[in-house]
Structures are given as C-alpha cells and as structure tokens.
Design a protein around this nucleic acid. Structure first.
Lengths: 246, 246
DNA sequence: CATAACCGTATTGTATGCGATTTATAGGCG
DNA sequence: CGCCTATAAATCGCATACAATACGGTTATG
C-alpha cells in the first residue's frame, strides 16, 4: 500500500460524535470526499474501510449505501464502491436544482433574520475570509457551509437536507472541475446576500443568490480545469471507460 | 396475529423486477405505504418483514434505512421502524419544497415536449380519469405519478429523485390529512398544465403548477380530516406523545 | 392497594462466515 | 510472440449468529 500519507482533516468547528457508529463512518467518508482526501474514482473497499474504523463491513456498507443515494459514491453491483465522478451533465443538473432550492431559502429568510442569526452569518463569512486562498479544500467547504447555514435558518427540515446534499455534491464538482482560486469573489457575494436578506428585499436577495450560484457554476462547470498535467486532462475520459488512476 | 387481510396491491402499470433484492423490498414497502396498506404509525419489525419477503433482516434493514432517509419511515434507535407520521409542520415544509422543485420542472419542460411525451402524459391523465373516485389510494398514487412522469421528462436525474421523494411524502400526507375525494379536480388541473407546456408558455405553466400544488396542499394540510371517528382525531396527538395504535 | 424492582422475552445492533461474482494472473495454443 | 483460456485471489451479497437494549409481566414490598 504505497503513499499512505493521510492529510489531517482540517479542524471541524463542532465535533459531533453523536449517533450510531454507522453514521460516524458515513460522516467520516463524506467529509473525506468533500475535503478531497478521497479523490473521485478512488476505490472504497468495504473491509479496508472497516479495518480503518474498527467496525465491520456491515456498517461500512450501510454508510456507503447512503452516500451512494446522495450521489457522492458510485456503487456498482458486485464491483464495489468508489468516490463518484460526476459528469459535466450531472454537474449542471445539480446546479439547476440547487438554484431552485436556494431561491426558496432566501425567499423564506428575507426580512426574517434575527440578530443572532445575522451574527452567526457574519461570523461565518469572517472565517471564509480567513481561509481565503490559503487552503483550497477548506475554502470550498466553508463556502458550502455558508449555504447550509442559511438553509438551517429556514427551519424547513427537508430543505435543509436537500441543500446539504446539493452542497456536498457541488463541493465534489468544484474539486473536479473548479479552477484554482475559484471561490475568490464568493465571499463578497455572500456578504451582499446577507445584506439583502437583512434589508428584507427578497427580490434582490433572490437575484443575488441566483447570480452568485450562476457565477459559481460558471467558474466551475463551464470552465473545465485547464491543467498542464496530462493526467488531469485524461482522467475524466479514463473514468468514462471504467478505468481509474492507480 | 389478528386481522391478517392484506388487500391486493393494485396492478402496477409496469412491473419492474430489476435490481437487487434489497431494492425489491424497498420498493414493496414504499408502495405499501403510499397505497395505505401500511398506515402511519404501523410498526415495521425487521424479521416479520424478512419472513414475508423471504429475505434476511440484513436486506430489510437496508430498505428501512433508505425509507427512513426519505422520510417515509421513522427509525428510532433500538426501538425499531414504523411508518412515518408526518406532522402538519413537516407537511407544509414538504409542500414548500415541492413547489420549488416542480416550478423547475415546468420551466425546463415548457415548449420542449415531444409528441411522444405528450401522448404519454395524455394517456396517464386518462388513467387518472378512470380511477377517479373509484379507488382513493390508487387515485392518490396516480396523481403523484403524473408529477413524477413530468419530472422524468426533464432528464435531470437529481430533480427526478427529489420529485419522486416529495411525491411519496405527499402521498403519505394526503393519506393522513387529506379529505376523501380530495383529488377530484386535480385531473383537470393536470390537463391544463399539459396544455400550457405544449403551448410553450412557461409563465402560465409555472403559475398553473403553483396553483395546482397550492390547491392540493390546501385541500390536505389546511383542512385536517374532520372525522366522526374519535380515533382519527386523537391519533396525531397520541403519536405526538410517542404512542401508537395497537 | 399502589409502587418499585426484577426477570424473561422480543427486537434491534453488530460481527462474522459462506457462497457467488468479478478481477488478476499464469499457462497453453495458435 | 500474442491471444485465449483456466485457475487463483480478492471482493461483494446475503444469511446467520451473537450481544445489547428495551418492553411487559410478575412478584416483592411499603
């Protein structure tokens, strides 16, 4: 097993050891994927993972099953699981749905934010500023968490779950197709959205959110990474043929 | 085990025996819930179900897990699974998200329907007419399937999955809170939506869909069933306290 | 008589084992 | 020398077994 250098998972704001062990495995893998510790195409054998976490294949299976439903993991019958490798078409689909959902979020929230919630949002944006450019994966994760934070403020459980899911998948997509520094201006856009929400102008908030997401999608999806490394260029094609990098 | 009279599942348009057996169990339970063969609050013990289907608890567990994620089943730790009993608040949440999603559906579809697709939709609406009033549960199921059919025509995999999910949950909600004959005028509204989509007027289609869903929501959620049966009236309160009918 | 503690039973949570399917490897044949 | 086939290794699909927890009834006790 070569190259076994696992990068430390960046410190989580709130460590939540709650729930069953299966959920713990689920969250761990999920996070590893989002932070790009596990790259798309990476094989995910049940027993290796079980060994790593000290649980049986049963629980790993359960976790992988859920991740597969959410689209973060590909689960081929009798051939095992691997980190999902979204196509550009899937990416566009996800972004379309995401725009719809987040429009609902801002409409629900405009003019209804408590000061506590505002502080929470501002504090988050400040953290985004800190991570700016310094840490690619963390920056991506924080950008996603901003939207999740917004969704949670609606109190709509289903909406929260869906936004959570599309944000995860968008993180994966950005990791794949995003340019480096792609989240540069996102922080400012986040600030603008907060301002619009605070002022209660839901039309403006809606428009801002729409443009924000379109911008994110455009940076990522419409501009596949132009890399000097031939492997990056070939990877999607290889994966299309069912091949994976060693 | 008293009262073991299982009503035949109404004939499915397309029997799809595909996929793993776990998925088969999943679909079976799902359908049983939607058609009200399993009422909200009904306990779902793993081994009884396994016996019934001739599979082990492992597969039943997998199915119940997925259903729990989708909100059709409630899964309490160490206490087993039961058919979900959505609250009115959850119901409203689901309908809110559903409106958002289906707006995206009609926007994607307006003016882009092939004649084949139109025929498919018209044929479906005709089936809805047939079931009109004759069979409550089947009527509800068909109404949901109309929306799923629309979603499938977008080709957006994520959107399809989400619409599928919210439709399932809406079926459950209607079963709980819907008046009898609540889907009366729905068929005509479906026809109008088809017409608007065909004409390519996406604004009108959007409005129609919005009103349609609002009407459905209003019939159901805003008008909790006024029943002479005291058990129906008490059930939600009982369930709120974690109590279930025998 | 009411209440609390105890124990048996039923059901879930997790691990493990076996057979099946797939993938990799090595050997034979053209 | 390359291709096809046969055999071996690895991995998954599923069932089963065991351990842990919660529930119901019974008995002991205040």
């Amino acid at each position: 097993m070569p190259g076994r250098k696992a990068p430390e998972p960046s410190a989580s704001p709130s460590v939540e050891p709650k729930g069953s062990r299966a959920q713990a495995v689920y969250r761990a893998i999920r996070r590893a994927i989002i932070e790009q510790a596990l790259r798309p195409g990476q094989k995910l054998p049940e027993d290796s993972i079980g060994d790593e976490f000290g649980v049986s294949r049963t629980l790993v299976r359960e976790a992988l099953g859920r991740l597969s439903v959410e689209g973060l993991v590909e689960l081929k019958p009798n051939r095992g699981a691997s980190v999902a490798y979204p196509t550009l078409e899937e990416a566009r689909d996800v972004f379309d749905v995401r725009r719809s959902l987040e429009r609902l979020v801002v409409q629900s929230l405009a003019g209804r934010l408590s000061t506590t919630q505002l502080h929470s949002l501002e504090s988050h944006v400040r953290r985004e500023d800190d991570a700016q450019g310094r840490d690619g994966p963390e920056s991506i994760r924080l950008a996603g968490e901003f939207h999740i934070l917004l969704a949670e403020m609606t109190g709509n459980g289903l909406l929260i779950r869906y936004v959570h899911e599309v944000c995860s998948r968008c993180s994966l997509i950005l990791a794949l197709y995003g340019r480096p520094h792609s989240s540069e201006c996102a922080v400012n856009e986040h600030r603008q959205i907060i301002a619009a929400l605070q002022s209660g102008d839901d039309g403006r908030a809606c428009t801002l959110m729409d443009h924000h997401l379109e911008a994110v999608a455009a940076r990522a999806v419409l501009a596949p990474r132009v890399s000097g490394d031939i492997r990056d260029l070939l990877a999607p094609y290889a994966r299309n043929e069912g091949l994976a990098p060693s």
